[in-house]
């Protein structure tokens, strides 16, 4: 690590003792824990006198995002003003016509609606359910390692296996319908795989199923940071499990919840595989369960009939939509905090 240079060690007399420590017991102990390091040194005021330090630390991430994200995407933005073809060759500048075509295309709006709907339904559930699951497996119990690992398998199962399994569950004669019929809850099979709305809902179920384990570990890591004594204090005050969940756990993992919200939001707007698995390859009957990435694939990527320029315009729209919603969500949660 080249980072050794950065520490502003050993200020002249930073005088830890001189400051009247407000010191609730644990911070004093923390101080002791920190002491094995080099001599006590400079404090926050001297932070980043070397202005380039933060940039140095973030440089690899910036380079990666810029070179392998922003730069190729700028290319896409350029393409969106042309009539380029997926296989290259001469392209003409066509101004905004790709964008005007997009705004007048019913299929584009249908795909946008589906993508938005996906986000609206999936995001809140995906923020909450894995948290509940993490709370359930947080405690060390005999066999808990087995349960944690088992809950994680959907994340790593190959998509072929997942596709087959879910079709097997959701078919008209599949497991779900059979059970519901046996329980006399339904008389005719629920058309999970042939109704566009139900395909969308089933795909959301699939997304949640795959995401549960994935985000569970995010929360597990975060729960480790919720100070245990807060739980103890709350319990002492007579708060039940539900109240403690909302008043101690949730605020404690707030940052992670925001992160999961942003990630699942981005993911939902880009969902493709799940719809493809359940309604392939048209995107449900009549293509009515198509999402934006599905639409991009249909109009932009095909080597024979695709129009890379138009596909790029839709990609730009998807990007703007995603960024806009993320910033909006950011602002909303900020306001909530203050």
């Amino acid at each position: 690590m080249a980072t050794q240079t950065q520490k502003p060690v050993a200020g002249p007399d930073a005088a830890s003792g001189a400051v009247p420590a407000p010191a609730p017991g644990r911070t004093r102990r923390l101080g002791r824990a920190l002491r094995p390091g080099p001599a006590p040194g400079a404090n926050g005021a001297a932070l980043y006198r070397r202005w380039w330090l933060p940039w140095l630390w973030t440089l690899p991430a910036i380079v990666c995002a810029a070179a392998f994200g922003v730069f190729p995407f700028l290319n896409t933005v350029v393409l969106s003003f042309t009539d380029a073809k997926p296989l290259g060759g001469a392209a003409n500048f066509v101004g905004l016509s790709n964008y005007t075509r997009m705004l007048g295309d019913d299929d584009f709006w249908l795909a946008t609606r589906n993508s938005l709907l996906y986000a609206v339904i999936v995001v809140p559930l995906m923020v909450l359910l894995p948290l509940l699951l993490a709370v359930l497996v947080e405690k060390r119990l005999p066999g808990i390692g087995f349960f944690r690992s088992a809950f994680y398998t959907p994340v790593i199962a190959s998509s072929v296996v997942v596709g087959l399994s879910w079709q097997w569950l959701l078919k008209d004669e599949g497991l779900v319908n059979t059970w519901l019929e046996k329980a006399h809850l339904i008389r005719d099979a629920i058309p999970f795989l042939s109704d566009p709305w139900l395909i969308l809902l089933s795909a959301m179920g699939l997304t949640l199923w795959k995401g549960l384990g994935w985000y569970m570990i995010f929360y597990l890591a975060a729960l480790g940071n919720v100070p245990r004594d807060l739980h103890e204090a709350a319990a002492m005050d007579g708060a039940g499990p539900v109240r403690r969940f909302w008043h101690v756990t949730v605020p404690g993992v707030r940052q992670t919840m925001l992160l999961v919200g942003v990630l699942t939001g981005i993911g939902s707007l880009r969902v493709f595989t799940e719809i493809y698995m359940l309604g392939s390859p048209t995107g449900g009957p009549g293509g009515q369960a198509r999402t934006l990435p599905f639409y991009i694939r249909d109009v932009g990527l095909d080597p024979l009939s695709g129009n890379a320029g138009y596909g790029a315009a839709v990609s730009v729209a998807l990007f703007v939509l995603t960024l806009g919603l993320t910033l909006l969500a950011q602002r909303l949660t900020k306001g909530d905090e203050e």
Binding site: T282, P285, G287, D298, V299, D302, L304, S305, G306
Partner: peptide
Amino acid sequence: VVLSDPQRNAIVAEVQLAMQGK
């Protein structure tokens, strides 16, 4: 006869709607 995948999908999608009676 060659159709591109999206062309074929577009035609198939309409036929599916007809088959469902929509």
